[in-house]
Amino acid sequence: MRHLGLAMTGGLLLAGCATVPAPMASPPPPPAKPTFATVGLERVLGQNAAALRQLFGEPDAEMTEGTGRKLQFSSGICVLDAYLYPKDGGGVPVVSYVDARQRDGRAIDRASCVAALTRRTGGR
Rank of each mutant, 00 (worst) to 15 (best):
R124T: 14
G10M: 15
A82S: 09
G57P: 09
T64G: 07
R43Y: 00
A116P: 10
E42M: 01
C78Y: 03
D99Q: 07
Q47D: 08
A100R: 02
L4G: 12
T9Y: 00
S96P: 00
A49F: 08
G57Y: 02
Q54H: 10
A50P: 11
N48H: 09
V44S: 03
A116N: 12
G89H: 03
A100G: 08
A51D: 06
M24T: 07
L12V: 13
T38N: 10
C78N: 12
D104H: 09
G105K: 03
T121I: 03
T121L: 08
P27Y: 02
G89N: 09
Q72D: 11
T19E: 12
V95D: 03
K87P: 07
P86C: 01
F36S: 04
A82I: 00
A7N: 02
P28F: 03
V92C: 03
Q47N: 07
G76M: 08
A25H: 00
E42R: 11
A22P: 12
P27I: 01
T121A: 14
G91Q: 08
R69M: 10
D104M: 11
H3S: 13
R53F: 00
P86E: 04
P86Y: 06
D60S: 10
R43Q: 15
R110N: 14
Q72H: 00
L41E: 04
I108W: 06
L80W: 04
G57F: 02
L14R: 04
D88T: 00
Q72P: 00
A111W: 06
L4K: 03
P27F: 01
G10L: 15
M8G: 14
M24W: 03
V95C: 01
G11L: 15
V95W: 04
T9A: 11
G11F: 15
G122Q: 09
G11K: 03
S75I: 06
G68M: 08
G46Q: 01
V92M: 10
V39A: 14
T35N: 01
S74K: 07
S75R: 03
G16A: 15
L13Y: 08
C78W: 00
T67K: 09
T35V: 10
Q54A: 15
G5K: 13
R43T: 14
D60Y: 01
A25W: 06
A111T: 08
A111C: 05
L14V: 15
G90R: 11
A15L: 13
P21H: 07
V79W: 01
V114L: 06
A116Q: 09
V39S: 13
R2S: 12
G123V: 08
A51I: 01
G89F: 07
P29S: 07
T19M: 11
E62W: 04
G90I: 00
E65V: 12
A22N: 08
A18N: 11
G11C: 15
L12K: 09
D99I: 02
L41M: 06
L71Q: 14
P86W: 02
T9L: 13
V39N: 05
G11P: 14
S96L: 07
A15Q: 07
G123H: 12
G122Y: 03
F36G: 11
